[in-house]
Computed example of a mutant assay.
Amino acid sequence: MRAVLALAFIAITTFGLPAPAQNAFGDSDPVDFPRPAPQDFPIHGIDAARFQDHIDWRRAKRAGTRFAFVKATEGGDLLDAEFATHLNGALRAGVPVGAYHFYYFCTPPRVQARWFIRHVPKRRGMLPPVLDMEWNHHSPTCQHRPNGAQVRKSAKIFLRILENHYGQRPIVYTTPGFDRDTGLTRLRGYDFWLRSTAETPAQTFPGQGWRFWQYTGTGLVPGITGHVDINVFNGSRADWRRWLSQNLN
């Protein structure tokens, strides 16, 4: 036993990693990430939308879900059909939860911000709101692709309106291809939630800091039927408690 503990201590101190995760999550298409890999981070959570039409939040929490982001709105006229159910279920189970907005490039940012505010309440236990900016290759109504300067300008307008309303600095989510095209991560002063499902963020977004890492879209979590996105928080359990104390509503 002493040898095992010593090896564990050496591994953690040598690689500078937090204590590993303890959860019952799985993945139907796992990736062999180099370290630090998802399992090296102790705080895991999910993001969900209408595709996850039933979640047993208490069971998901017991399995290791420590936070969740749920889709609220898209553009200036779409409300996710499961938003209220997901939000209320997570809050009742005691899972810190945030709402995200999927940006639509054919509607002005102020219109989209007002639509989000109309549907997302201020409630205790909520994480900061999230702006999800990525290309939507499947949109039948909007194929507009503004340049990077315009994207960043629109993002700043949207983010400023949300911060003024909720009193929380929003989080920004993006993907590797979108960031390469637009330079969205040049925005300063925001926590980034990065999608990187084939490589680590250090490989996909070299030199970019991040707060949350979406590492799979084929996750398996007790209490959730089918696949779900799984994410990690960048830090130790103590870091997580500290971040929550500063950012939770």
Rank of each mutant, 00 (worst) to 15 (best):
P96S: 15
I117N: 10
H44S: 06
H54K: 15
R58V: 05
A72Y: 05
V111I: 13
H44A: 11
D40C: 09
F51M: 12
F69Q: 00
G45T: 11
I46V: 15
R59I: 12
Y104F: 13
Y104C: 00
K71F: 02
I46M: 13
F83V: 00
V31S: 00
A113C: 14
V31P: 07
D56S: 12
V120L: 10
F25Q: 04
L17G: 05
R35T: 04
T14C: 11
G75W: 07
E82F: 11
Y100M: 08
P30R: 07
V31D: 08
I46H: 08
F69E: 02
W57V: 00
Y103W: 12
L17F: 13
D27R: 01
P36L: 06
A84M: 10
Y103N: 10
Q39P: 04
A84D: 13
L78S: 03
G89R: 03
R50A: 13
R35N: 03
K71Y: 07
C106I: 04
P38W: 00
A72G: 03
T85I: 15
A49D: 11
L78H: 13
G76E: 10
R62K: 15
P108S: 12
A19Q: 13
P18W: 01
V120I: 11
G94T: 11
F67P: 08
Y100P: 02
H44I: 06
G16C: 09
H86C: 10
C106A: 00
V111F: 04
L78Y: 14
A84T: 15
G98H: 00
